[in-house]
């Protein structure tokens, strides 16, 4: 038979664990819907025929265009091609008004990091999926989750709070960069990435 004191102790312990592992991770992040539901699946592969670099290109000076500007979308969608409601939003709200789409960037790096897609894609020949996972074949855009304290996208920490058993693309903390550099025998000096 457990003593009441011990019982109360264990109750407290259990309470903390539940709050810490279930409530806290949920409450820590603020969720935002993307302005438009974009389907990578429709645009790429057999259906769309586009490759990643058709929209996310590396410029000749080695700078990465990131998420393409509206111009890129408008080059095909100057008027609606299909019938989807999302495309209608694209055309009516953005293309015809010439407003840039306020995308929320999942993989956005902090401003103190200089990440060169050119050296990772062209020199190291990494696949896009290495860091971005199956994002390129997703059918819809998941909500963007913003850390209420740090302001970072949840993708930086990764989907699990414990960071155990993660895929290579689940998380983009400095540790993740360093581990990959270590595996590939690339220098891990500060100035390699920080600006």
């Amino acid at each position: 038979m457990l003593k009441p004191g011990l019982l109360r102790f264990l109750a407290g312990l259990f309470f903390s664990l539940v709050i810490g592992w279930y409530v806290f991770p949920y409450a820590l992040y603020e969720k935002f819907e993307q302005p438009i539901q974009f389907s990578h699946k429709v645009h790429t592969g057999e259906t769309g025929g586009l490759s990643c670099t058709d929209c996310h290109e590396i410029k000749s000076d080695g700078r990465f265009s990131g998420i393409p500007a509206l111009e890129k979308c408008a080059s095909c969608h100057s008027s609606a091609i299909g019938t989807s409601s999302q495309e209608k939003i694209l055309v009516d709200e953005y293309v015809s008004k010439n407003r840039e789409i306020p995308w929320l960037i999942y993989a956005k790096q902090p401003q103190n990091v200089y990440f060169s897609h050119a050296s990772h894609v062209k020199l190291a020949a990494l696949e896009c999926t290495e860091c971005h996972g199956s994002h390129g074949s997703s059918d819809s855009l998941r909500p963007f989750q913003r850390n209420r304290i740090s302001g970072y996208s949840r993708d930086i920490w990764g989907s699990t709070m414990s960071r155990i058993n993660r895929a290579s693309w689940d998380g983009a903390k400095m540790d993740d960069c360093e581990n990959c550099h270590d595996r590939r025998h690339v220098a891990n000096t500060c100035l390699k990435c920080h600006k």
């Binding site: 109360r8 312990l13 903390s16």
Partner: peptide, 19 residues
């Protein structure tokens, strides 16, 4: 008292303080 002690100990094994 014991409850608080347990919670405090438990808290150390959750991500809260560290995160």
């Amino acid at each position: 008292m014991q409850f608080v002690g347990g919670s405090a100990l438990g808290l150390l094994f959750t991500p809260i303080p560290w995160k």
